[in-house]
Design a protein around this nucleic acid. Structure first.
Lengths: 228, 228
DNA sequence: TCAACTCGTGAAGATTCTGTGCAGATCAGT
DNA sequence: ACTGATCTGCACAGAATCTTCACGAGTTGA
């Protein structure tokens, strides 16, 4: 992220002091920032500047934030961070319905705004990445069955063939316990087999790669995948 | 994409609010959308409207999403985007399993749905292009299936007939792992063949021409083309 | 608490798989 | 038929992976 080109953020806020404060902080964080002070200006600037994210105040002259949100989302999907004067439930619900992805209630800390913006951008990055493949997500774990690849919090993890098959078998019913016999049948194709430590060994190997806590041992029964 | 005729999408979802929300958004994205609210209606509309893609909720009145999927796939192969209520359940099996489907877990972001739909359609486009005569780009690799020519970063690479067929077979599903058996069946037309090093030899030759790193070995499974 | 049972672990040997060089077979064009 | 290009698949080495075993740690139920 340090070497990638700067993200552009459109800040839409009619209050000059707040607008400038947000802008300054985001620039300090390394973002490109363009500013708009009303609805029509926001929609126009959105088309002109192609921002990666929009910070949008609900209360605006011209038409309100929801309308702006609708219009820019109609142009192109973009993550929107709504800013509301009070935590009015209705406003928030409408905003989320119109396509806002997150919202913040005034007064807010700049640090929180920055943190949420970064989180939102990360989320979208992952969504775009995900769109390219047929991956399944379970907590921080992402499994692409076709490519036989696995990621843990964005970092790819190398699994052997057996480890991968074992994971997929467990992931097919997250949280559900599978007996060793069931696993030996489904993963190894040894129906009726038992009395071997083979499953345990591979569970150990799998745990060492995706985190011990993600495979729960159910004493006397078997193993289950945790969605964390 | 701007000049091509609009793609038609069939949205199958019994919840009116969600159905309409998806429909509205997809129409805003420029798709033609037809709506169905239950299994029988979906199957009938599928035949009548010839959609390019189906968005399908698992939970449906009549018969469930899997059944609908089976019936429409029986009529004509079509990309299906499944929507599941929660990511537990054996529903994930469908996502992990073989089918040509992608899936999404509720609640989902409209943007993500749109991104994945576009990705699915691109995948299909690519397969069609590969079968036809237009050139496809995969990372720095450009493949013109009609002319049977390949370029790597603008420089043409000479491939033998077998190498080319092998590349096209791998390129039809970039990133996806294909077994040697599958390759022997599809490229060599020897269904059921195995126990030979023929595939390996041609992979070696292909690698020497397009770069070793572009063909990923999946130990114990097969090979996959990387899009780099 | 204690015995009985179950599970985790590390290591080692066995097994399987892949990369590679090479040679004979096959093919296409002359 | 000749020649050069291509294809096939074997043999081998090295790498990767799998399985099993022994034993200590952990868990359960009486």
């Amino acid at each position: 992220m340090s070497t990638s080109p700067a993200r552009t953020i459109l800040v839409v806020e009619d209050e000059p002091v707040i607008n400038q404060a947000i802008t300054d902080r985001l620039r300090a964080e390394g973002f490109e920032v363009v500013q708009a002070w009303d609805g029509p200006g926001a929609v126009e600037l959105f088309g002109a500047s192609s921002p990666d994210l929009v910070v949008l105040d609900i209360m605006l002259p011209g038409y309100d934030g929801h309308e702006v949100c609708r219009r820019i989302q109609a142009q192109r999907p973009v993550p929107v961070m709504m800013v509301t004067a009070r935590d009015d439930e209705a406003d928030i619900l409408v905003g989320l319905g119109v396509g806002a992805d997150d919202y913040l209630t005034k007064p807010f800390r700049m640090r929180e705004l920055v943190a949420r913006i970064n989180a939102l951008l990360r989320r979208v990055d992952r969504a775009v990445e995900l769109a390219g493949s047929r991956a399944v997500e379970l907590g921080r774990l992402r499994i692409d069955a076709g490519a036989r690849r696995v990621w843990l919090s964005e970092v790819e993890v190398h699994l052997t063939a057996t480890e991968f098959d074992l994971l997929v078998c467990l992931a097919a019913t997250p949280g559900q316990v599978l007996t060793r016999e069931k696993l030996l049948a489904d993963v190894w194709g040894w129906p009726g087999a038992s009395g071997t430590r083979t499953v345990d060994s591979h569970v150990k190997a799998l745990r060492s790669k995706i985190g011990t806590e993600r495979v729960r041992t159910v004493h006397g029964v078997g193993y289950a995948l945790e969605t964390i």
